[in-house]
Write a protein that binds this DNA or RNA. Sequence first.
DNA 1: ACAGAAGGTGAATGCTGATTCATGTTTCAC
DNA 2: GTGAAACATGAATCAGCATTCACCTTCTGT
Lengths: 228, 228
Amino acid sequence: MNQHSPSVGRLAPVTARGQRSRLRLLRAAEYVFGQKGFEGASIAEICRRAGSALGSFYTYFPDKKAAYVELVDSLGSRLRSELATAVEGIDDRLDVERAGLRAFFDFAARHRQLYRIVRQAEFVDPPAFHRYYRKLAAAYSTGLAKAMDEGELRVLDPEIAAYSLMGMADFLGMRWVLWETGDLDHVVDGAMDFLTGGLSVPPAKPKLATAAKRTTKRITKASLHAHR
Amino acid sequence: MNQHSPSVGRLAPVTARGQRSRLRLLRAAEYVFGQKGFEGASIAEICRRAGSALGSFYTYFPDKKAAYVELVDSLGSRLRSELATAVEGIDDRLDVERAGLRAFFDFAARHRQLYRIVRQAEFVDPPAFHRYYRKLAAAYSTGLAKAMDEGELRVLDPEIAAYSLMGMADFLGMRWVLWETGDLDHVVDGAMDFLTGGLSVPPAKPKLATAAKRTTKRITKASLHAHR
DNA sequence: ACAGAAGGTGAATGCTGATTCATGTTTCAC
DNA sequence: GTGAAACATGAATCAGCATTCACCTTCTGT
């Protein structure tokens, strides 16, 4: 009942040839769906790109939507697994955040269709869309909660923190990975600066307050002008 | 050349009746596009919902896409204007952030199609999609930069901060306004807690470090359990 | 009260593209 | 080597719209 039950029609390939065809089709689908959107993509174009005949698509997928959903799930689990790998063995939790952010940007750069495919999923198959973010958020929340328990992070609501951090990564990636490839190191540093210390001005030592504030401001503003 | 040049055909309504019709059509379009997506929505359904005949749509819009783009632009400027209003007169910058977040959630709650319409725009008309976020980000960045200049906020790259904050708001709204309406006050408080102070544990007074950490942890975890 | 403009109507046109199917080709277990 | 199961093929089917158009109704100024 779960994944590919070959009960109705034959969907899971049996031979090596079949596996190859299915994979070619899926890869082509990732490209075309990402390029044109779900509705805009035609099975014909996917097949052309995969080097298969029109009918072959239906040997492996019951319909257009099924292929799409599989793509969303697959992108989700590939992303989660890459993030887990990128982060494993890192002790300091802030370094985990940095590595995770970096890995996300890398993934997005390698799968420029990621955003478009996932976002379209909201219309094609809402459950798949939810799954994608909920699974990511669940793993993230757990990690954050543990770090908070261990005193590695300030104690916050882990789920709120997880969605906040996911949102940051999402928008930063959209802006600096997809729209305008810039100095990603600078973006990662800037993001880490923000998510580490927040927006509010740390209470300065009372006596020197004004002077210290002024100095900090000048220095950092100058360094910011180096970019952009 | 700019907005509605009635050069080819009559697109801008002249009489009050026309204005009403156009508005009814636009409202219906907001609903139907939000519900079914751009491709999934049919002009016929929009007209049915608006109580107009099929042909009337083309009295006011050159085609399906034009109506969509107008919707995206309109949602964008309505949002920006509501945010500006919600925030004007507030002095403390962190209170501005709080009020802005709250206002965004309210807007999203009142326009449950906002997310779906804006996200679809990426496929329907990429320029409209970019405009939406870029205009928001530009206004936001400017405000943040000013607050930083005035020493109200820690100095960060304003554009990175703007996209980070937009991403947070976007994801928190998706999760707690659209998916599961929960205790929004708690979400706003949690988000403010995060964006104010960041993730990292503030350096404790050396002598009491361990004890203090423990205590904080117990208290806050207990209070967190009150929710969810 | 009438002309002409603005607004309204919905059947008809045309195109696009998902899905099916009858038929050919390849693979592989034996 | 052979036959059944797997795969592959692409023309044909079919349904769903966007858009057009020829004609009707309601205003508004004079």
